[in-house]
Nucleic acid binder design. Structure first.
Lengths: 395, 395
DNA sequence: CTCCGTTATTTCTGTCGTAGAAATAAGTCA
DNA sequence: TGACTTATTTCTACGACAGAAATAACGGAG
């Protein structure tokens, strides 16, 4: 009756049920290449623990013993995801499938590490309280599975993170080698896992997003800048350069505006919110917000229309490069700037089609309209994933 | 003493020794995550069969029991690789590491399947004879391992191949659904494996190329067209679109010439041999061959220089897109058009650097100067890989 | 020259994860 | 009600693995 960490097959089973549940043992066996006997053996500890539940699936007209599909108990634990920027911490409370239950944010009053830790801890406590979840929670393998405890906190940040423990580089905060996970765990008393923000968001899309059935897809985020993530062979691609934002400065339009780095018509210059607002603002002779830009474009205002059309063509071209070079057939658009899709999505698709062999598989484009909270939700996904990785069940 | 197919660990061991040998069991254990006991158990059948050999590595000054590195017997079998185009079949005879031992080619006298099969069979027989290897050979698990027999034939083709058995689409030959592997095996009496030509070449670079230590890299081929292959997480990326040549028409220079499909400044228009020759030919007012173009450019001829510089910038830009979007840090250039690198490689590297974050990992560029025979060698690599996949050893 | 220390490899043995086969279960349909 | 189908469980054997100990082959110090 000792608790042991999950073997490879058990871990894959847990992930498969989390992502595709409810699902029968027979289907799981087919997907995982395991025998019926193994499925029974491997699922029993999860069922005994209460992490898996069986649902009754009414399938009318099918012969044979009815399947007893397995699912995860989504409210077993709550998780908090925090997206940290240079100005604020944005948080979301979620269940085991990263479904947002509450959200909140707090501004930072400076970049001093201890002050930031204070703000984050306060935000976590607020979110936990909102969801009726106690701090000082336990992993998935101890205590009641009734959503009354936090399973963990995920925190994502623009920059480089090492081993999910240390922020090695965070340009917006001016940080180097900050052991943020340890500091937060000391304050909160629950596990904390860090990740680069684009990698975190990509992880969320891999496990919980509309492209989760694809074993290869790309993620493009549009916001203050342009971010880019990639999943190949069912694994998020990360390298030592993750955090530099290599997708943020692709040449897309040689007649476009300049970005801060002096690149004419690169992805950030063409797509980022500040750049789009600035271009339209010049034409209007006044500052203009992003929502207004999109409204003006939707209403046919010439200057707004011109800028968003060029942005749409640039986005389509970027998706063409992505699909043709990474050979993915699904792309997820996320971030607070995806409102652009409403006014320029058709233009983007036309540009993509122009750069793509007509015989090639069509590229699915999924738009995650959740806006900025997707970043925090990505952080929650990191916490969920880490929680599963730490899980130990009776042998 | 029954013969069984290799388990996963044994197969990985064979591949690791083939790619990185000579290598000690201790190092193999570290690379494969296996215990010393497992290394001994798994390597014994290979040693008994004579496929592995032990080398004595003189390491002066090291303490402890000297290592007995394992290597493959490269001359255990010969392999033939055939690259089939619309006009000819090009062949190469290799050893177990795809090292070319002989090469030959034969023109096709039409696209009739039976006639093409005749030409290929003749070419294989010629190459086998050149290398003193008998047809009607055996797999790696039967007969003497002395290079006196062919282990198999690989054949690569531009287009789509299914299960390494059927050419489902070959535009240059006008073929659809041709069971070429069966037809050739009936004629030759040895295993034949088919593959898309870019996938085959990518496989060869993965197992035997200078980038083989990277678990992710891209391959760009320059020739009559432009081809593109990708390895991610140590696996060649293939999709149903493999064969369409999605890397062949990337927009790279909006002031470039047109390709046959009407794309201005796409990769084929900028880099392919026929396009470069045509551009220089227009300036010279006469037809000009590729070798002459490169010579003129090297000598500073203005028109040739201009065309190859533009091509270099386009290549650099393409490599920038590849590295930034696939996150690889190695790119292999191959094909009969890589002579371009001699005259425009510096220009290409400068263009790549301009599109790449200066803090990002430098991208290694490897140039495979073997020319057209790389295609045939790629086909041989497919045969070698398939031969290993079919291997059965005593339990 | 002998002994000690180090590293590599082999041998022995037990453990663990797996699947095949049979049994059991729960439905539909005639 | 019985036959058939499909799902799941139980029982049992097998194979792959690693831990530990033994063996091997060196270099270096005394």
């Amino acid at each position: 009756m000792t608790q042991v960490e999950l073997g490879d097959s058990a871990r894959e089973l847990a992930r498969e049920v989390l992502i595709h549940g409810p699902i029968s043992r027979a289907d799981l066996g087919r997907r995982l290449g395991l025998s019926p006997a193994s499925l029974t053996r491997l699922s029993k500890p999860f069922l005994d623990r209460g992490l898996f539940v069986e649902t009754a699936e009414a399938v009318q007209g099918a012969t044979g013993r009815p399947a007893r599909p397995l699912d995860v108990r989504v409210d077993a634990r709550r998780f908090v995801g925090i997206k940290l920027t240079g100005e604020a911490a944005y948080g979301v409370l979620t269940d085991l499938r990263a479904t947002a239950l509450a959200q909140a944010s707090r501004e930072l009053d400076g970049h001093d590490v201890e002050r930031v830790v204070d703000v984050i801890a306060g935000l976590v406590a607020e979110l936990a309280d909102d969801g009726g979840a106690a701090l000082g929670g336990a992993g998935l393998d101890g205590g009641a599975l009734d959503g009354s405890a936090l399973g963990g906190v995920g925190l994502s940040i623009g920059g480089n993170v090492t081993d999910q423990r240390v922020v090695t580089r965070a340009p917006f905060l001016g940080w180097r080698d900050v052991p943020l996970a340890d500091l937060l765990e000391a304050r909160l008393g629950i596990p904390v896992d860090l990740e680069n923000d684009v990698t975190a968001l990509t992880t969320a899309e891999q496990w919980f997003g509309p492209a989760r059935a694809h074993d290869a897809f790309a993620v493009v985020t549009v916001g203050a800048g342009v971010g880019y993530g990639l999943v190949m062979h069912d694994r998020v691609v990360t390298t030592p350069d993750t955090g530099l934002g290599l997708g943020g400065h692709l040449p897309l339009d040689q007649n476009g505006p300049l970005c801060l780095d002096g690149h004419r018509g690169c992805s950030t210059a063409m797509l980022a919110i500040p750049s789009i607002c600035a271009q339209v603002g010049i034409a209007l002779g006044r500052e203009v917000g992003y929502d207004e830009v999109l409204e003006l474009a939707a209403a046919g205002h010439p200057a707004a229309r011109s800028v968003t059309d060029a942005a749409g063509r640039a986005l389509g071209r970027m998706m063409g490069y992505i699909a043709n070079l990474t050979m993915v057939d699904a792309i997820v658009l996320s971030g607070e700037g995806v409102g652009l899709w409403e006014v320029a999505g058709d233009t983007a698709l036309a540009a993509l089609a122009a750069d793509r062999d007509p015989e090639a598989t069509p590229v699915e484009v999924h738009v995650d309209a959740a806006g900025f909270s997707s970043w925090a939700r990505g952080a929650a996904a990191v916490a969920i994933q880490a929680s599963l990785a730490r899980l130990r069940l009776p042998a």
